[in-house]
Computed example of a mutant assay.
Amino acid sequence: MDSFLRRTSLIVGLLLAPAMAKAEWFQFSGTAMTTPIQMEFWGDSETEAKRISQRVFDEFDRIDAQMSRYRERSELSAVNREAAEHPVVVSGGLFRVFEKAQEVSELSDGAFDISFGSVGYLYDFREKKQPTAEEVEQHLPKINYRDIELNKAERSVSFRKAGLLTDMGGIAKGYSVDRGIAILKSEGIRHARLSAGGDMYLLGDKRGRPWVVGVRDPRQAAKNAVVLPVSDVAISTSGDYERFFIDEEGNRVHHILSPKSGRPVEGIQSVTIIGNDTLTTDGLSTAVFVLGVEKGLAMINKLDGIDAIIIDSDRKLHYSRGLLDPQDASAPE
């Protein structure tokens, strides 16, 4: 297995490579897809860095216009309106995300399911509203990723069931980060960090040293539960602290819903997935969150090049096999 330990850069004694006369680190931040975007990279000049960063932000905006469920004119909204009546031809990017979503759904036996939007749309986290038991019961049968048909030859999407609604919130940001990294690479950037909310890609190392990334404590935003030295890697975290409210009974109502119950998943506070591309790690972080510790680690331990860190509701840390000492025999099968 291409484990996390093999991917990390632990050689900290290397001297920094000689820099070009004007090269330096440039940092940029903004908002896209209702999410904070942060980026830093090693570049030759401020003018070029601004131009490159704008290309990346424009790509985030373009993808948001395609895949946002909040935009009436987005491709995804058109799919949700029309796919139960006839196949809807979509762009290559959106089709790719649909394909990856189906792949993760199959892998996790439906724990990840973009048709959760059929019930998810009934939640309003800003207004602190959640559906009634009757509303959940009425819409729950509409959640089934197997009712989403993809035609690769025509690049179209169709639904077998009326009322099915998809939501790309658990995977589109990962795709956007990958696209942003592709732009940076095309511009000759070799050392960069790009993040969109809980999804991040570290391109190369930090000029001779590893990037140091913290996995935040789910209950103390200013503290890290784990600190990772990494390079050339994708990292995605799903947590019950990202979008939530506390209801009248004192329950935490968060955005990661079980496709089986239509209610927020219990038992886990956060899941961090480490892998080779952010589209995959984004989907898997949600899948593991829904599966739970035992089933989630069992799935991850079967995947090459993927590792996981889970913080359960008792605030206990769990690691996939690739993060454990080779002599540790306690890794779940």
Rank of each mutant, 00 (worst) to 15 (best):
A287G: 02
P141K: 07
V233L: 15
E85N: 14
S105D: 05
A153Q: 15
Q38P: 06
P36Q: 10
Q66W: 07
R81D: 07
A153K: 15
L107W: 05
Y145H: 07
N151V: 10
I181V: 15
S68L: 01
I114Q: 08
G13C: 05
E82M: 05
V290E: 03
P218Q: 04
V119D: 02
A111S: 12
G214W: 08
L15A: 14
P326H: 08
I37M: 12
G292H: 00
S330A: 15
P229F: 00
R126S: 13
I310L: 01
T278Q: 10
L165W: 13
I309L: 14
E187K: 09
V88L: 00
M20K: 12
E333D: 15
P141G: 05
G296L: 02
G30H: 07
R243N: 01
K206S: 11
L203T: 09
L165G: 14
V79G: 06
V136G: 02
G93C: 06
F116H: 12
A32C: 07
D240F: 00
A329S: 14
A23M: 14
I274Y: 08
S118Q: 04
E248L: 03
R207C: 05
V288D: 07
S270A: 11
D217V: 11
A308C: 14
I181T: 10
I11N: 15
V56E: 05
P210V: 02
R209Y: 06
A153D: 15
G174M: 08
S285D: 06
F60T: 08
D109Y: 08
R243K: 03
F57K: 02
G170M: 00
G296M: 07
S68M: 01
F95K: 09
M168R: 03
F289S: 04
M39D: 10
Q138I: 01
D307G: 12
G267C: 07
M67N: 04
P264N: 06
R6D: 04
M1A: 14
G250D: 11
I183M: 02
Q327Y: 05
F125C: 01
N224P: 02
R216A: 09
V213D: 14
H254S: 12
W42K: 15
N224T: 11
N144L: 08
D282N: 09
R263K: 13
L107F: 02
D277Y: 07
V90H: 09
I148H: 13
M67C: 10
S236H: 03
A182M: 13
S156Q: 13
G250I: 04
D109S: 14
F244P: 03
G198D: 05
A111I: 09
V288Y: 03
K185N: 13
I181M: 11
K142D: 06
I300H: 11
